[in-house]
């Protein structure tokens, strides 16, 4: 009887499923197209219609990407990205936790002002900061060949610090954590205090466990943001091939600026761009964030709810 009910329930929901299946397929179309097209040869690709169908698991384009000359560069690029992820997650996550705790739980004058001040920067477009910070990085005194007046050299441009210094205070994470802290009953903190816990212990043993889903969200978001970061790395490390984060690295690879064989292919009668290979690079560059999100999407929704974004 239970099975019948489930069955009936599903029948009733079938238009809903149909709609969701069709729309989800539309949403995934560009990525699936990229994946499939990356597994066919050039000739097949030009014969294929709106969806190239690989007849077998053909990884020839992926093998082309993992060229011995390109692999070390790719490893470096991924390394730079992972390091940035860890750095931003720890530093901006840690400072945001402290700030959020202060702004949620401590009573002091000017609290609302500080909160609004921090939050106001999320309302301004990033470009307002980027050009001036770029100049500040370039003219930083006594670094990168600069004299005490900041002239003569290149400061922090094309070095790692320029990828690590801006954006360490993240107002949106502060906002998210503050909302989450409001959702945690204050009795827990009081109980811990009665047991003699100091501020740090309270934070570590009471709040951090509650906030761990939010931290997972922060970590994933940081990774996605760092993996895809494009404009700022282009401005500050575009001239140093050994420091390119992945977003810039793979985009350059697609545009042919990283020496990769077979991007231009000789066919009888001409040279044409190897679009399946380009799409293979795109697929490879997209895969990590997609897989990571897919694995953690349960935490993701929980984290969002934990953050009290409940309406």
């Amino acid at each position: 009887m239970n099975r019948t009910r489930t069955f009936l329930y599903q029948i009733r929901n079938s238009p809903l499923h149909l709609f969701l299946i069709v729309t989800s397929a539309i949403m995934m179309y560009p990525l699936i197209y990229g994946l499939f097209a990356s597994m066919v040869g050039m000739e097949e690709f030009y014969r294929a219609g709106w969806m190239p169908m690989p007849t077998s698991l053909n990884f020839i384009n992926y093998i082309s990407i993992f060229d011995p000359t390109v692999v070390p560069m790719m490893v470096r690029s991924v390394g730079v990205t992972l390091f940035r992820t860890l750095w931003y997650a720890v530093v901006s996550g840690g400072s945001a936790l402290l700030a959020a705790y202060a702004l949620a739980r401590l009573r002091f004058r000017g609290k609302e002002f500080v909160f609004m001040l921090l939050l106001s920067s999320t309302m301004l477009p990033g470009i307002v900061y980027q050009l001036p910070i770029y100049i500040m990085m370039a003219r930083f005194p006594l670094l990168g060949g600069n004299d005490i007046m900041g002239q003569g050299g290149s400061g922090m441009i094309n070095t790692m610090p320029s990828l690590l210094l801006p954006g360490l205070v993240a107002p949106f994470i502060i906002f998210l954590l503050r909302q989450s802290i409001y959702g945690i009953p204050i009795e827990y903190e009081e109980a811990a205090r009665i047991d003699g816990a100091n501020f740090l212990q309270v934070l570590w043993y009471v709040y951090v466990p509650f906030l761990s889903p939010v931290f997972v969200v922060i970590l994933i978001n940081t990774f996605v943001a760092q993996w895809n970061d494009y404009l700022w790395p282009l401005m500050v490390v575009g001239g140093n091939p050994s420091l390119l984060p992945t977003g810039l690295f793979f985009q350059r690879m697609m545009a042919g600026a990283i020496p990769l064989k077979n991007v231009q292919v000789a066919v009888p009668g001409g040279t044409i761009t190897n679009i399946p290979l380009i799409l293979a690079i795109a697929t490879l560059a997209t895969l990590p964030t997609v897989l990571l999100y897919s694995f953690f999407q349960r935490y993701f929704t929980e984290g969002m709810q934990g953050a009290g974004l409940k309406g």
Binding site: Y134, A138, S154, G155, L234, V236, G238, G239, P259
Partner: peptide
């Protein structure tokens, strides 16, 4: 060093010159 050609090269050059690199 290969920094592209045409528009891409010009872009990279302007960036580098603004930075002094």
């Amino acid at each position: 060093e290969n920094h592209g050609w045409d528009e891409e090269l010009r872009q990279n050059l302007v960036n580098a010159m603004l930075a002094g690199t």
